[in-house]
């Protein structure tokens, strides 16, 4: 009885969460004439025409490349700027520490859409509008608070004694951190970077406001979706979904801990 209940509920959950995803994948490789035929629930054959057209003919691959570039720059910057702060928040006791933590928490919930418009004005003055770097800088401000907090919780799991031992052996504190603490935290920091990548990859509002021609993928899609037929919309959905889903799969083992922490 109990087993039956578990199976039944599991199936319902799987249907609710997976059906929209599977259908989008299915329709993205359904020939247009099959999709628009109301009598055909399942396509008679598959085609990669929409995905190919979208990526090559319509130039979405450029948007894909730009999205990747933006995300990588945002991760790099937030790493370089954020990780020292994470370290300070864990290993030092100092005045104003709680205020700093609070400030970072506040910026974490802060919507990028509020600063997108004024940022565009600033970028226009600096002749930076419509560039990859302008979006990457905005995304850095979105990812950075998250990186600081997640980095701090990763460092908190590494015993400080390891660093002390290395320092007794004659290493400076910085050396000890680079040679001992960072390598030990690499798994946690990688998970953090992956989630940071997904955040940037998915961000649409600021990207769409800050760029006109050099659009990232979501900004490109939101701009062109209206003029596209349904199968092309689904193709766009699939192109956006695949990397994010792969990355989530990579962090699946510490998914709940990492996301739980990232949302805290």
């Amino acid at each position: 009885m109990k087993k039956f209940f578990i199976v039944l509920v599991s199936i319902l959950i799987l249907i609710w969460f997976l059906v929209p995803i599977l259908l989008t994948f299915l329709y993205s490789i359904t020939p247009e004439e099959d999709y628009y035929n109301p009598n055909k629930i399942l396509p008679s054959k598959f085609t990669f025409k929409q995905i190919k057209d979208l990526l090559i003919l319509l130039g979405a691959w450029k948007a894909v490349i730009r999205s990747i570039q933006v995300a990588l720059i945002a991760i790099l910057f937030s790493f370089l700027l954020g990780i020292p702060a994470s370290y300070a928040l864990v290993r030092y006791k100092f005045k104003g520490k709680d205020s700093i933590r609070l400030l970072i928490l506040l910026t974490r919930t802060f919507p990028l859409m509020v600063v997108a418009v004024p940022l565009l004005m600033v970028y226009m003055k600096l002749n930076l509008n419509d560039t990859i770097i302008s979006v990457a800088l905005a995304h850095t401000s979105m990812v950075l608070p998250f990186m600081v907090l997640l980095g701090a919780s990763v460092f908190a799991t590494i015993p400080e004694e390891f660093e002390e031992a290395a320092m007794v052996d004659g290493l400076s504190r910085a050396q000890a951190v680079i040679r001992i603490t960072i390598p030990l935290s690499i798994q946690g920091l990688t998970a953090a970077s992956i989630i940071a990548f997904v955040m940037s990859w998915n961000e649409v509002f600021a990207s769409a406001i800050l760029t006109l021609t050099n659009r990232t993928l979501p900004a490109y899609v939101i701009n062109t979706a209206y003029a596209s037929t349904d199968v092309y919309k689904f193709a766009a959905g699939v192109i956006m979904a695949i990397p994010a889903m792969i990355f989530m799969f990579l962090v699946r083992k510490n998914l709940v801990t990492v996301w739980g922490l990232s949302l805290k």
Binding site: I21, N202, E203, M240, A244
Partner: peptide, 9 residues
Amino acid sequence: IPLALSEIT
């Protein structure tokens, strides 16, 4: 999975 997807997706 939906956590990894953008709002548009």
